[in-house]
Amino acid sequence: MIHQDIELCNRLGLHARAAGKLVNTAGRYACECWISWNNRRINGKSIMGLLTLAAPCGATLSIELDGADEQEACAAITELINNRFGEPE
């Protein structure tokens, strides 16, 4: 199991489009993905969960991954978030 903290650095935070991309990325891997912020823990493969988390820019998400491909999933999710979900700054 891996535990990784990542700060959201895109301007709008975990908005609809970004949440969709995160779900798509997490969904590509078999491992379980849990994301916690502000005392809530949700399934990283659920867009409803991510949207209701409503994490703004600057929030530090705590990500837990558990499964055979957890390393790859962690790298992909970290890259996505650090690339601001592909959004311009």
Binding site: L12, G13, L14, H15, A16, R40, M48, L51, T52, L53, A54, A55, P56
Partner: peptide, 21 residues
């Protein structure tokens, strides 16, 4: 339940996602 969680959000833009739900 979903809307209760979202309504706690401080960000106007993120809170507006309740319309989507």
């Amino acid at each position: 339940h979903l809307l209760e969680q979202l309504n706690a959000a401080e960000d106007d833009y993120l809170r507006a996602r309740s319309d989507d739900i």
